[in-house]
Nucleic acid binder design. Sequence first.
DNA 1: TTGTACGCGTTATCAA
DNA 2: TTGATAACGCGTACAA
Lengths: 370, 370
Amino acid sequence: MHGEKADGASRGRQVVSSRRGASPGAKARLPRKAATLEDIARAAGVTKSTVSRALGGSTRISAETRERISALARRMHYEPNYLARNLTTRRTLSIGVVLEDIMNPFYTEVAKGIEVVLKQHGYVMLLTSSNCASEEELEITRTLLRNKVDGVLITPVSSDSEPIRMLRARGIPFFIMNERSDNPALNWVDCDNRAGGHLATEYMLKLGHRRFVCLRSTKLRGSRDRFEGFCKAIESYGLSLSDQVILEDAQTREEGRDLVDDLVGRVGTGALPSAMVAVNDAVAIGAMESLFAHGIRVPDDVSLIGYDDISLAGLIRVPLTTIHQEKYSMGQIAATSLLQMLRDGVGKKGTQVVTHPRLIIRQSCRETAS
Amino acid sequence: MHGEKADGASRGRQVVSSRRGASPGAKARLPRKAATLEDIARAAGVTKSTVSRALGGSTRISAETRERISALARRMHYEPNYLARNLTTRRTLSIGVVLEDIMNPFYTEVAKGIEVVLKQHGYVMLLTSSNCASEEELEITRTLLRNKVDGVLITPVSSDSEPIRMLRARGIPFFIMNERSDNPALNWVDCDNRAGGHLATEYMLKLGHRRFVCLRSTKLRGSRDRFEGFCKAIESYGLSLSDQVILEDAQTREEGRDLVDDLVGRVGTGALPSAMVAVNDAVAIGAMESLFAHGIRVPDDVSLIGYDDISLAGLIRVPLTTIHQEKYSMGQIAATSLLQMLRDGVGKKGTQVVTHPRLIIRQSCRETAS
DNA sequence: TTGTACGCGTTATCAA
DNA sequence: TTGATAACGCGTACAA
C-alpha cells in the first residue's frame, strides 16, 4: 500500500527509451510499451516461437523450459496481445452486442444474461445501443465488423434489415434477440407475444371486464403480435373490436400518461372502460400515473395490466399485474447458442427458440363490480 | 435490395479456396475473408500504400485516384481492420468500462452517459461488471489490457487496488468513477457523499424528527461518507448518536427489508423512531416493504429517505424522497475527460470532479406530529 | 503523386 | 524439443 506510489515510478522496466512524453512534440501520450513474446524470448535466451508454445500450452515443449518461461512471463507481467493474435488466428474472443437501448430495463436484463455467459467463456462484450434507428444500427454493425468481433448478438430494427444482410454476407455468426424471421437459416430467440397479448386480455375477460382501453404501439418490437393476441381474445368472447378504445403510439411512460390524460379529458372519468391493457410496463406505469392524477383508482375503478415484467413492476404504487418475459434467459440463450456456433460451426438450419410468457398477478387488476 | 441474396454467393471474390465449411474437418467456422487494402490495390492496379492514403484522407494523392479507389472500396464493401491498424498506430478506438454491476440501475445510468459520449467520438465500449469482487476486477482489467483498449473507465473496488496499479504501471489513461483518492495524480469523479448524508439527515431534523434509524453499510461505495454526514448532522443538533438505532450491513433491498423486519420484531411497532435514513434507494425500498407489511404507514407513522434517486424511486408505492446523484453526468464527465486525455496527453495532476447531491422531495417524509 | 520496404506481436509451418 | 521464417492487414518513412 505504501509502496504503491514508488511502484510505477522507480521500478526499472525493460524499455528505457521511448518513455512517455520523452519524445518531444508527442501530443497524445502513448502507453508504456508492454512486454512482448520477443522480450521474454530475449530474457530467456530462446526464440519467440518457443515462448509462444510454452505459454500457449503446446505439448511439444519440455516441462522444464515451460516452467522457466512461464515464471519469466509472470515476472515480466506479460499479457498476450489479443489483437496481434487475431491477425493469425482470426479470433478475437470478443462479441458485439447491439441492443435497442441499454437504459431500458428490459434490455438491461438481457444484457446481464449475455454478460454472465460471455465472461464465463472468456469473451468480452462490445456493447452499444441502436436506439431503434436504422442508420445508427448500420453504423454500429460496421464498427463491429471493423473490430473483428467473433460474433454478434442483436435486437435488430427488423430481421431483414441491412445489418443482418451484412452479417450474413460476411459470414459472421450472429443471433437475433427479441425478434423473429421466416428465414429458416437465421438464429433467433423471441417471446410468443401473440400468446402474451392473449393471456393478458383473457385474464381481464375472466375477471368480467367487457370494455377495454388498449394502449398499443405500431412501432415497438412485438407490439403487433401482442395486439393480435388482444383482438383474438376479444373476439373469442363474442365482443366487437369497434366497441373498444384503441389508442395508438403508446411506447413510453410519457406517452402512456399523455394518451390517458387525453382520453379522460375527452370522455370524462365516468364513461371510462373498466379495463386497460398496455403494450408494456412503461406505458402502464404512465397510464397509472394519469389515472391517479385524475382521481381514478387502480384497481378499484379501473383494472390495468402491463407487459414485460420489468424489475420495477412489482414496486410501483400499485404493484403491477403483467406478463412476464424471460429477459435474462433470452440473453443467456442467445449468448450460449452463439458461442456454441463459434465452436461447432453454424449449420444449415438456424436455432430458433420461442419463450413463453407468464401471467404475473399482482394488485392492479380486480373483478368488475357488476 | 433484390440483388442482396446473390451478392454474397455469386459475386466472384478473391479468395477461392479456404471457403467456410469447404475444408473438411474444420470444426469452428471462420468468417469469410473480408476485403483488405491489398485486395483493393490489386483491383485498382495500384499498391496498397496508395489505397491506404486514398482512404485515409491523405493529401498526397490525386483527387482522381482517390475517387476511383474510394468508389472501388465502397463497391467491395471494404471495412478497415482496426485490429491490424492498432499494430502500427497503437490505438484501437476502444475503451474498457468496468462497473460494479450493469443491472444496478445506478450504474445503468452511468453506462448510458458513457455510451453516448463514446459513440459520438467513434469509440467502442468494452463493458463488464466487476461485481465488487477484487479477483474478478483484476481478471477483467487483464482482459482489457490484452485487448489493448486506449483507456479505461472504472468504478474500482478501491482506489488503491491492484487494477489501478496495473493501469498506472502500463501508462494506460484511466478515469475513476464514483470513488476518490488522495493521490493528486489520479483522475476521478465522485459525488460528495458526506454532504449528501448531511443533507438527508438535516432535512429530517428540520421536519422535527429527533430519533432515527440509520440503515448504513460499511461495504458500499461512499457509504462511510454518507454515514459521517449523518453523524455530523445529528451532533450539530445537539443529539447523541447513542440514542439512534444504527443498523449495519444494509446493501440491498432484501437486506433493507430483513433489517427492518428484525428491528420491528425486537422493539415492536410502537417504540419505533419516527425517521429512517437509508444508505441507498434499494435499501429504502426494502425498508418500506417491511414497514407496510407490519402495518406501519409511510410517511404517516414513519418518515423514510433514500439515496441515489434511481429511476424507480419516484414510482414506488409511496414516491421516495431521496438524494439525487448526477449519474448520467458522472458517466459523461468521465468519458469526456478520458477522451480528452487521449487527445492531449495526461498531465501531472489529475482531473478531479466532485458532483453535488440534491435533495429530491417526494412523499415519503413528513413533519413529526408533536 | 506513387511505389518499396519494413515493423507491429502473434501463430503456424517448416526444417533442424 | 527447438529455431528460423513466413504470414496476417495496416501505416509510414523513404525513395522514386
